[in-house]
Simulated assay, not measured.
Amino acid sequence: MSCSGSTCSVTLGGAGARAHVLASTIAFGAITDGRATLRVGGRDVTLARGDEVTTDSLRLVCTDVTRDTVALTVERR
């Protein structure tokens, strides 16, 4: 994970992987058919490359999904 100001780049993969990002926890769930399932602050989200989702405090953009990892850009809203 690397951060600059209120934006972070995060890569997650593997059972139990999680990152504490901008005062929130992002947990890796699984990857199925090119889509990654994550748990963000108590909410399940599913993202493919290029997808974007917002939560109460974060904006997540999926920059890559491989067979076993997901890369994200995370920004504070």
Rank of each mutant, 00 (worst) to 15 (best):
R59H: 10
A71N: 08
T73N: 03
A27R: 10
L47H: 02
G14L: 09
V70T: 11
T73E: 15
A71Y: 07
G14V: 11
R18K: 15
T54W: 07
T11L: 06
A36W: 06
R49I: 04
A27G: 09
M1T: 10
R77C: 10
A71M: 09
S9A: 14
R67I: 10
R77D: 09
A15S: 15
R43C: 06
G34A: 07
L58Y: 04
R35G: 03
L72N: 01
G50K: 04
T69H: 14
V53I: 12
R35A: 14
T73K: 06
D33L: 10
L72C: 04
G13D: 11
R43L: 11
T54F: 07
E52L: 09
T37F: 01
G34K: 05
A15G: 15
V65D: 01
L12W: 06
R43V: 15
V61Q: 13
T55C: 10
R18P: 00
D64P: 01
G16L: 11
D56G: 12
T11I: 13
R67H: 12
S57V: 10
A27I: 03
A71E: 11
D51V: 07
H20C: 07
L60F: 07
A30N: 13
S6C: 04
R59V: 12
I31N: 05
D33F: 06
S24Y: 08
G42P: 11
D51F: 07
T46M: 08
L72F: 04
A71I: 05
L22P: 05
G14W: 11
C3E: 13
T25A: 13
R67W: 11
T73F: 00
S6M: 11
T63C: 05
D68S: 15
L60Y: 04
C3L: 08
F28T: 00
E75D: 10
R49M: 10
A30M: 08
L12H: 04
T7F: 02
L47P: 01
S2A: 13
D33N: 15
G16F: 08
T7R: 13
C8K: 01
T25V: 13
G50F: 05
G13N: 09
M1R: 08
V65Y: 02
T7S: 14
F28M: 03
A17L: 02
S24P: 02
G50M: 07
A15I: 09
L72R: 01
V10M: 00
V65C: 06
T63P: 02
L47M: 14
R77I: 12
A17I: 08
G34P: 08
A36P: 03
V53F: 06
S4Y: 08
V74H: 03
T11V: 15
G41F: 05
A23F: 11
G14M: 10
R67A: 15
V53L: 08
V40K: 02
A15K: 13
A17M: 08
R49W: 03
R39A: 13
A30S: 15
F28I: 03
C3S: 10
E75N: 06
G41P: 06
T37N: 02
G41C: 06
D68L: 05
D64T: 06
L72W: 03
V40Q: 06
G29M: 01
